[in-house]
Structure formats: structure tokens, C-alpha cells
Design a protein around this nucleic acid. Structure first.
Ligand SMILES: [Zn+2]
Ligand SMILES: [Zn+2]
Ligand SMILES: [Zn+2]
Ligand SMILES: [Zn+2]
Lengths: 136, 136
DNA sequence: GCGCTTCATGACAACGATTCTCATTCGGGA
DNA sequence: TCCCGAATGAGAATCGTTGTCATGAAGCGC
């Protein structure tokens, strides 16, 4: 009822190119970065289209999106479709995926404890990766 | 040593008014909302000043700031200075503060596990508060 | 209280990420 | 192939936030 699942998006050259550009990267990148990266590869796609597709893909759970400290949305195609979180390097942007029952349960429990339902959560961890720490 | 932080900000009427406007609210509000709320109370303060002060206060840890889904920065004066997180109602904005050793330890552990150091984290939980859920 | 130096403020311009508009193009089912 | 609606692209428009700079207010030594 409240489903209405897959709106069945239409496959286009642009969409494929964006998905393509997203693969093989471990850093989160902004729509604009992805756009110019594609332009650099000779792939010509409108900026608005990049934004639209990234949003759609994020909505469909195909890619993860997080907000940088200054509010910019950055995207990344993740290895798994399952719910997970990230540990991001503040210096180089390296991002590894992590999961943890502990947090999931804690979030659920603490929310319920305060009478909240339909709970969701966002968890992001950031620090310096081993490599960047060594380079200091 | 590496301390000496406190830049000793100068106390002004505006700064006080903003701090004032921030007290007694359980919702997170944007700089603009706070600004017009003050204007409504007859308190005249420049918008840029509101932005500047909120940022400064956030930097000093006097207030908490989180990003809404659409990237807008929203602020709130918290009851405690200690590290904590929030459970926010998606419908009415009500926010309650929560703490949990479990998450803190998990974040630290999972980051260390991947070689990360100088770890920080952000955790936000959102759902429907009891009241809003009932009103459905 | 009197200047002086420095920081804060306010009005408004400037910015930049994202979204909107709308004419044009394209995908896919009949 | 033909048609219709979804997708695209170029550029304008939004809008939160930041920068500029002349003016005002704090703090300080006198
Ligand atoms: Zn991921
Ligand atoms: Zn989770
Ligand atoms: Zn709080
Ligand atoms: Zn925490």
C-alpha cells in the first residue's frame, strides 16, 4: 500500500556514466567533483543531470551520501547494500565501511526509551588514517 | 601548552541576546529562524552577526550544531557541556539529549581497528516522538 | 571621564552549492 | 516505425552562508 516500490528509472547513457565514474573510488566525492572528473575523461554530461542522478541513486540506496562539515553533499558507491557506516580520514578522504550491532541496538534502544518510533540514525566516524598519521 | 584557546570574546548586547534567544528551546533552529525570532521580540540584530556568533559559540562548545537533511545548519543550546547526542523528532523537531558509553567505545574501537587515530564522531538519531506518533 | 586601539556590528554585495525551467532529445512499448 | 512521457542540458534562479568595509562599542592606560 504505502509501497509503490521501484519507480523504474530509465537507463540512459548519462546514468551509466555516472555509476561508472563512481566505481573504484574509496573517497566520497561531491557532485561537482564527479562532474568534472567525467568531463576530464571526455564524458560530457550536464551538471544538473549529475545532481539529479546522484540524488536518485542515493534515494534508491545505490550510493551513500554524507555531508561534509561545511554542508556539501558527497557521494560514494558502496561495496555492500547492507546498512553500514563509515570511518573517514580527515586528511586524505579515505573511507572504510564498518558495521556494528552495538550501535544499531543502542540507537534503537535509546530512542525507544524516549518514546520515539520509526527510528533512523546516522553515524559517521572520522580521524586520521594510519598512512596520513605517519606522514606527520 | 597547546592550550591557550579562549580568545576571550568581547561581551556585547547582541551576543547576549542570541544566547538568550537560544535558551529555553528544545528544538534545533537555523540561524535565520533565530534571527527572525529575535526580530519578532523587538530585538534588532544583524543577520551576519547572528551567523558569526552562532559559529563562534559552536566552536567554543557553547551550543550544539547539526545539519538537517538538506544541509542547513541548526543550533541549540544544550543543557550539558559534556559530550552527548540527540534523538530528534522528524515531525516537530523536539530533541532530547542522550549519552551512551556503548557508542563511544564502539566508535573508538572500530576506528582503531582500521588504524585510525584522533577519532571523532557524529551520531544523530531521528524518529517520531510519542506525541507526533499519536497524532497520526 | 578622555582618548586610543582593537574587536564587533550591520547593511549589503558576493559566493557557491543545489534546484528550477523549459525546450529538446531519447527510450521503449504499441 | 510512431508516439508519449521521462530524461537531459543550458542557463537562470534560489538561498544559506560568507566577505567587505565603514561605523560603533569595549577595554585600557591615563
Ligand atoms: Zn558505504
Ligand atoms: Zn547504523
Ligand atoms: Zn544537546
Ligand atoms: Zn558520542
Amino acid at each position: 500500500m504505502t509501497e509503490q516500490t521501484q519507480a523504474a528509472r530509465r537507463p540512459t547513457r548519462q546514468r551509466a556514466a555516472i555509476a561508472q565514474a563512481l566505481t573504484g573510488t574509496v573517497e566520497f566525492r561531491s557532485a561537482q567533483e564527479i562532474h568534472s572528473s567525467m568531463a576530464g575523461d571526455g564524458t560530457r554530461v550536464g551538471l544538473a543531470t549529475v545532481y539529479r542522478n546522484l540524488q536518485a541513486m542515493a534515494a534508491d540506496g545505490e550510493v551513500d551520501v554524507i555531508r561534509t562539515a561545511d554542508g556539501e553533499a558527497v557521494y560514494r558507491s558502496c561495496a555492500t547494500d547492507d546498512h553500514h557506516h563509515h570511518v573517514v580520514c580527515r586528511s586524505c578522504g579515505l573511507a572504510v565501511e564498518v558495521t556494528g550491532d552495538a550501535v544499531e541496538r543502542w540507537a534503537e534502544a535509546v530512542a525507544a526509551e524516549h518514546g520515539f518510533t520509526q527510528v533512523r540514525h546516522t553515524v559517521e566516524i572520522d580521524g586520521l588514517c594510519a598512512e596520513c598519521a605517519a606522514r606527520r
